[in-house]
Simulated assay, not measured.
Amino acid sequence: MIYPIVVYGDPVLKREADEIEEGSIDVIKLKDDMFETMYEASGIGLAAPQIGKSLRMFVVDGSPLEEEGMENFKKVFINPEIVWEEGEKWNFEEGCLSIPGIREEISRHAKLRINYLDENFVEHEEEFDGMKARIIQHEYDHIDGILFTDYLTPFKKRVLKGKLNNISKGKCDADYKIKIPSKK
Rank of each mutant, 00 (worst) to 15 (best):
W90Q: 14
W90T: 09
N91D: 12
N91V: 13
E93M: 13
E94N: 12
E94K: 07
G95D: 04
G95I: 09
G95S: 09
L97W: 00
L97E: 00
I99Q: 02
I99F: 10
P100W: 12
P100C: 04
P100Q: 06
G101A: 13
I102Y: 11
I102E: 12
R103F: 15
R103E: 15
R103G: 10
R103V: 15
E104D: 03
E105N: 11
I106D: 03
I106H: 08
S107W: 09
S107A: 08
S107M: 09
R108A: 10
R108Y: 05
H109W: 15
H109E: 13
A110H: 11
K111V: 11
K111D: 13
L112F: 07
L112T: 02
L112C: 12
R113N: 10
R113F: 07
N115A: 14
N115P: 00
N115E: 15
Y116K: 07
Y116L: 02
Y116H: 06
L117F: 14
L117Y: 15
L117K: 08
D118F: 04
D118L: 05
E119W: 15
E119D: 11
E119G: 05
F121E: 07
H124Y: 09
E125A: 06
E125H: 07
E126L: 13
E126F: 12
E126A: 08
E127A: 08
E127N: 05
E127Q: 08
E127R: 00
F128L: 13
D129E: 15
D129T: 08
D129A: 14
G130N: 02
G130T: 07
G130Y: 09
M131R: 07
M131Q: 06
A133S: 12
R134K: 10
I135H: 08
Y140V: 04
D141H: 03
H142Q: 00
H142D: 11
H142I: 01
I143K: 04
D144W: 06
D144V: 02
D144R: 06
G145D: 10
G145H: 01
I146R: 05
I146K: 03
I146P: 08
F148C: 08
T149C: 12
T149P: 08
T149D: 11
T149Q: 04
D150M: 05
D150K: 05
Y151C: 10
Y151T: 03
